[in-house]
Design a protein around this nucleic acid. Structure first.
Length: 424
RNA sequence: GGAGAGAUGGGUGAGUGGCUGAAACCAACAGUUUGCUAAACUGUCGUACCUGUAACGGGUACCGGGGGUUCGAAUCCCCCUCUCUCCGCCA
């Protein structure tokens, strides 16, 4: 959520930046917002003046009662009654205005960083660089879903029976590979200075609201209405909520956390080859990294996080490219996002395996995550997060790229974790 | 799931209708003293919003959350959430 005061002070700039994000009706909404805010403040001032008077009068009544001057007290009481009548309408108006403003603010996306390219769709993203060699496959090479069946390591049909599509059952070496990747990613993150946490997989409404899943993305999450909980779509939600309503100490920056969790996404509306095999699941595993940092240093931290993801992909020996997302393809909450995509040879396509973003103060404003700056004032911190990494597409790429007539070769870095060198 | 107790500022904890934005202690921060550390002493020490002065000023709200009673609520009433203790169940 953007800060109303900043919008007020930089109206033109805000509108201009919202256009980069292809936000429709930017000018109209911002004007409306500023107008509402102006009126709200007028009403608030009137109301508070009345309340101040009420408070004074109430104290006087107390004094009259003590002195025994009943008449004076009664007189003051009628005066107070009138004031109260006026304040009721104002109070109603104020809360209406506040709700309207809140609603509007929630509907406005984060402002893009100055380096974000203009553009509407994924086509307009900028390829920053491509890293690694794309392997040549042997003649009998097939997409990962065939390999999963061939080696009996991921069973989609069985998952369909137990739950439904998008809930695969990992078996044998497939299950072990999952465990290996999770441990590998966690160990790497911890070695890079991220503190490990194991958060709940369900969150309450307040948490989902604070990180922006609610109200707009409600349909993306699995809900448990009986208890008012939501299954987490990413560990970002519980980890970031550690810092909800918290004032951190400036000397603790950067605060870096990592967590493994399973993630649950309804992915309503997805279909076709995009969702085949491991490409898109309703339940999947991911190791997430989250950082909280000082506004002056958050973009340096973003680079550190990018480097970390790069290192993981190098160690897994996967070819990848890094995209700087354009305004139209970025998420609602992000100010700058880099996507990492591995090349999955048998499918002949790039698969998104990580997304690393700086949210600046967009999340922390709703979270009320602040720190005391050097002048002793509280100020919103910057939040960042990234996947490091999401498993299914990594598995897809590993299976496809490393397939040989003898079986699927495990990258060196992973062998200590799997305990085997080949899936056959 | 049953019974009871409770929720106050960073922490402990006082406060049952106006003198309480909230005692006291601890922690923290700043200063004085000291050869350094420690101790002692002095001071500061919640958040948000509105307003804006020559002024570090003025105002409003907040004592788990929401609603109510009252001229006036941390204090009384109702609902909810959470915590603790005992019992039950259980990996």
């Amino acid at each position: 959520m953007l800060e109303i005061n900043k919008i007020r002070l930089n109206k033109e700039k805000v509108i201009e930046l919202l256009r980069v994000k292809n936000f429709k009706a930017a000018e109209e909404k911002i004007n409306n917002l500023i107008d509402l805010d102006e009126k709200k403040r007028q009403v608030q001032k009137q109301l508070e003046d009345i309340k101040a008077e009420l408070n004074v009068k109430s104290k006087e009544i107390g004094q009259y009662m003590k002195d025994g001057s009943k008449e004076m007290a009664e007189k003051a009481k009628t005066e107070v009654a009138n004031l109260k009548e006026n304040s009721k309408d104002l109070e109603k108006e104020l809360s209406e205005k506040e709700q309207e403003i809140e609603g509007l603010l929630l509907s406005i996306p984060n402002l893009p960083h100055s380096s974000v390219p203009k553009g509407k769709t994924a086509e307009d993203n900028i390829v920053e660089y491509i890293d690694g060699k794309i392997p040549k496959l042997w003649e009998g090479a097939t997409p990962h879903w065939d390999l999963c069946a061939k080696y009996d390591i991921v069973d989609f049909e069985l998952g369909n029976k137990i739950t439904g599509s998008g809930f695969p059952v990992y078996k044998g070496k497939g299950a072990k590979l999952q465990r290996a990747l999770i441990n590998f990613f966690l160990d790497e993150a911890v070695n890079s200075g991220f503190a490990e946490v194991q958060p709940p997989l369900m969150v309450n409404e307040a948490s989902a609201m604070a990180t922006g899943q609610l109200p707009d993305k409600e349909g993306q999450m699995y809900a448990i209405p009986l208890d008012g909980f939501y299954m987490i779509p990413t560990a970002e939600v519980p980890i970031t909520n550690i810092f909800r309503d918290v004032i951190v100490s400036e000397k603790d920056f950067p605060i870096c956390k990592t967590a493994y969790s399973q993630c649950f996404r309804r992915e309503a509306g997805s279909y076709g080859k995009d969702v085949r095999g491991l490409n898109r699941l309703h339940q999947f595993d991911k190791v997430e990294i989250v950082c909280i940092d000082h506004p002056d240093h958050s973009y340096e931290q973003l680079e550190i996080m990018k480097k970390h993801v790069e290192t993981l992909l190098h160690k897994l020996e996967l070819p990848f490219r890094v995209l700087r997302l354009c305004g139209g393809d970025m998420s609602f909450t992000s100010a700058l996002t880099f996507d990492f995509e591995t090349y999955s040879v048998a499918q002949d396509r790039w698969l998104e395996v990580s997304s690393v973003s700086n949210f600046e103060t967009f999340q922390s404003n709703r979270l009320k995550l602040r720190f005391k700056n050097q002048e002793g004032k509280t100020q919103l911190a910057h939040t960042l997060n990234g996947s490091a990494l999401a498993l299914p597409r990594i598995v897809a790429s590993l299976l496809e790229n490393n397939q040989t007539p003898e079986g699927i070769k495990i990258p060196k870095a992973l062998i200590p974790y799997t305990g085997f060198e080949i899936i056959d």
